[in-house]
Write a protein that binds this DNA or RNA. Structure first.
Length: 778
DNA sequence: CTGCCTCTATTTTTT
DNA sequence: ATAGAGGCAG
């Protein structure tokens, strides 16, 4: 593939030579490799940064160096991260180095937020308006459900959520509906959803998004790629603007992100691209959501002549911990060989491994260790429990509560994922933009207003028939007798409220408006009256949301920021043990790390092995590596010989990863239970590998259950389900005296026509006003 | 339309 | 075991 697009005109940049600033302050304390990575500002650079080797420091110092040497202005540096948290942290740390120049770094952000920013500037070119809405997962599912219904696809057999995942996978790989279609021809099963309707559904979904002036997360990248591909002049703007590109955690990038980066890097010949990617192939733990380790492994090929710098000097962990980590990860194949090492000769304490009877005992044991550590003077903040699955957390929480150990759970439901927050946002969004159907559907009966499925169905029918937003359909329907009087009144006042709120938006403080909306809609009252235990918490969250809104002036401004960056707040500074998943722990460090649940089946996860064979095992092993390398001083491994899984007790064998630890630095204790040492014989020979070469997405569909489903459905194709009104010629005039048939009221004769409203004498139910899209010529 | 009951799925998670 | 979602009766 051609990387070389012709040069643009920035051939002469001021190379404030490094000679002129031999030892600037910011280089102090960097080791040779780190400085090299900071100072190598010409051409492509791959920094392979092992765990705890000062990766973020290199990245931020490099930016400081580029700025200090006048190689580029702050607005000419593109720096990409995966999470908002990482972007925020980087901004902070750059600020510490360069002061207020960091404020000019407009292009420091996540792939998604930067894409959104670019898209808003050129939205028309991809068929959107610049104020397009970014859909969250709930909205996505809601929309897919509608499409499935329209196609008469059995939602039981083909769940919307599953399709959302499939589509997400396509988007992660940069595939558009057409690409899926052609893949389809070539034996791929990913488009076999709903008997091969997958690609059509995908196309329909995208069409719906466009008509909603909306994009989902995946689209932000995809549309950006399309924008660049179809508009070389636009791409050229960014080639010219971004003199330097930096990417953090490159091992986590997926195909779409890779394509995105490559397009942006094409402003110069590949061998001269000023792109610097930083990552650690050994910490690639997001393969299951589309990350391609290959991206980092083949960087050299993409950018010929790329300089590769390995950061191997670890500043975090003791010698023993590093040895354990290195030994475990050395069992993986296909990695850049990096060897972490320390400067100091301190090996530190031995790692501890304890086998317990069951998970309850394990939690108790961990609690005891924590108290023991506290007695040694360690604070709770220095300790973390890293688990494989969130289900493991509960037992620890219970034990901590019982013993009065302060803890905090990191990860879990995000602030913006909470129901009450999304509901509130739906109200706000609707106030701002009344035609946002998905938001209306979300809250139309929340709190309960007696507007259930039947009513919504009618609304849908009317809206679809005329291709108008639901709100508009409601405005029409409350003028007719299509709906019951009660529903009509309710809808009428609901619409009135939204009109009222919209009107007040102009001259009310945003947070006051927000409060008013939540109160007047009855939403706050709903939770105040709720008797459930979580109600007070939800009210708290709503309050927090409203507080947060004080920082914004207009609804529009607030909503634009909210979809991409709504952080969970509450950084409580209290001393507490952290509980989180291994995934959630990446990038963090603790003096004392507890690694419970090292049992075959749980870790490595059986499912990962079943679905992804050796590839899955290696990713699990990288997870183990991430876990171990979080620790600075001490690690406590543990396992439960018996664990309840889905309600049933099951006996577990010690994880094969325990066998991979160097025995001489592990202190095994059996905590008084009957434990005959750890050891898992012949683990490595045992791994299914037949799937290794195959695309993970295809694999999911090769499972026996899936095949069975496909077989069952092979000849079950329905044609029904065309909308009744879609066969009606919209806009064809209905005339007085004409015979018509109504879906609900049966046959009748038109007695009056008033725009789209018809008065009809029905044989069965007498005279009614109805909407023309509900009747068919008789 | 709502509330209750039954059925099912159940690794990891960001944007 | 358990939560969430969908189905059915009141």
């Amino acid at each position: 593939m051609p990387h070389n697009i012709e040069q643009n005109n920035e051939n002469h940049r001021p190379i404030t030579s490094q000679l002129g600033q031999k030892n600037p302050d910011y280089l102090k304390g960097l080791n040779a490799e780190q400085s090299d990575a900071v100072l190598s500002t010409k051409g492509p650079l791959l920094v392979l940064a092992g765990a705890g080797t000062g990766k973020t420091r290199v990245l931020t110092t490099r930016i400081a160096h580029i700025l200090a040497s006048n190689l580029a202005r702050s607005s000419e540096i593109l720096s990409v991260t995966f999470t908002n948290k990482a972007a925020l942290e980087m901004r902070e740390r750059i600020g510490q180095l360069v002061g207020s120049s960091v404020e000019g770094m407009t292009w420091l952000g996540t792939f998604h937020s930067i894409s959104a920013k670019i898209l808003r500037r050129h939205a028309e070119l991809v068929g959107l308006k610049s104020d397009f809405t970014i859909l969250d997962t709930d909205d996505q599912i809601r929309l897919i459900k509608q499409l499935l219904k329209a196609e008469n696809i059995d939602e039981k057999r083909w769940p919307a959520r599953q399709f959302a995942n499939i589509m997400d996978g396509w988007k992660n790989r940069g595939l558009l509906p057409n690409d899926v279609r052609s893949t389809h021809a070539g034996m791929s099963h990913t488009s076999m959803f709903a008997n091969g309707l997958g690609d059509k559904l995908y196309a329909d979904y995208q069409a719906r998004l466009t008509s909603l002036n909306a994009a989902d997360f995946g689209d932000l990248l995809l549309l950006c790629i399309r924008l660049f591909r179809e508009n070389p002049d636009v791409l050229a703007i960014y080639h010219k603007r971004f003199k330097y590109m930096l990417v953090d955690e490159y091992q986590d990038s997926n195909v779409a992100q890779y394509l995105w980066l490559r397009l942006l890097a094409q402003g110069r010949p590949a061998s001269e691209a000023n792109i610097c990617v930083v990552g650690d192939d050994d910490q690639s733990i997001y393969g299951w959501r589309g990350a391609e380790v290959d991206n980092i492994l083949r960087f050299e090929k993409d950018f010929p002549g790329a300089k590769i710098i390995k950061l191997e000097r670890n500043y975090r962990s003791t010698g023993n911990i590093l040895e354990a980590a290195s030994k475990v990860i050395s069992n993986n194949e296909g990695r850049f060989s990096k060897v972490l090492h320390t400067d100091g000769g301190e090996k530190g304490e031995k790692l501890k491994l304890t086998s317990l009877w069951d998970s309850e005992e394990e939690a108790r044991h961990v609690s005891e260790q924590i108290e023991q550590l506290q007695r040694q003077g360690e604070v709770l903040n220095s300790m973390a429990i890293l688990v494989r699955t969130s289900a493991q957390m509960r037992e620890f929480e219970e034990s901590f509560i019982k013993l009065g150990i302060n803890y905090r759970v990191i990860g879990g439901a995000k602030f913006y994922e909470r129901r009450e927050i999304r509901d509130a946002l739906a109200y706000f969004r609707l106030t701002h933009q009344q035609d946002f159907d998905l938001a209306l559907e979300r809250i139309i009966n929340v709190p309960k207003r007696g507007l259930g499925n039947a009513t919504i169905e009618v609304l849908h029918l009317a809206a679809r028939g005329q291709n108008i937003p639901l709100m508009q359909a409601i405005r029409q329907l409350i003028e007719t007798e299509e709906l019951g009087a009660k529903q009509r009144n309710t809808l009428s006042s609901l619409i009135g409220q939204f009109d009222d709120w919209s009107a007040r938006a102009a001259n009310t403080e945003l947070f006051e408006l927000a409060e008013a909306i939540l109160d007047e809609s009855g939403y706050s009252a709903m939770w105040q009256n709720a008797k459930t235990a979580d109600a007070p918490g939800r009210l708290e969250n709503l309050k927090e949301l409203v507080n947060f809104m004080q920082e914004f002036k207009t609804l529009g401004e607030f909503l634009e920021h909210i979809s991409l960056v709504l952080e969970r707040s509450s950084n409580d500074s209290a001393d507490a043990v952290s509980i989180m998943t291994l995934h959630g722990a990446k990038g963090l460090e603790f003096n004392n790390v507890f690694l419970p649940g090292w049992e075959e089946g749980l870790f490595p996860s059986q499912r990962s092995l079943d679905e992804n064979g050796n590839k899955g095992l290696e990713e699990e092993r990288r997870l183990a590596y991430v876990g171990i390398t979080r620790a600075k001083k001490r690690i406590f491994f543990s396992l439960a010989q018996n664990r309840r899984i889905h309600g049933r007790y099951q006996t577990a064998l010690p994880s094969r990863f325990l066998d991979e630890l160097p025995p001489e630095i592990v202190e095994v204790s059996d905590s008084g239970s009957s434990f005959g040492g750890y050891g898992y014989g012949g683990a490595s020979g045992n791994v299914a590998s037949k799937f290794d070469e195959k695309d993970p997405f295809d694999k999911a569909y090769e499972s026996p259950a899936w095949k069975q489903r496909r077989a069952q459905n092979a000849d079950h194709k329905t044609i029904e389900g065309e909308f009744f009104e879609s066969s009606v010629d919209i806009g064809t005039g209905f005339r007085i005296g004409q015979r018509v048939i109504h879906l609900k009221f049966g046959e009748g004769v038109i007695t009056n026509v008033e725009g789209k409203k018809l008065s009809i004498d029905f044989n069965r139910v007498g005279r009614k006003k109805v909407l023309e899209s509900f009747v068919k010529k008789g």
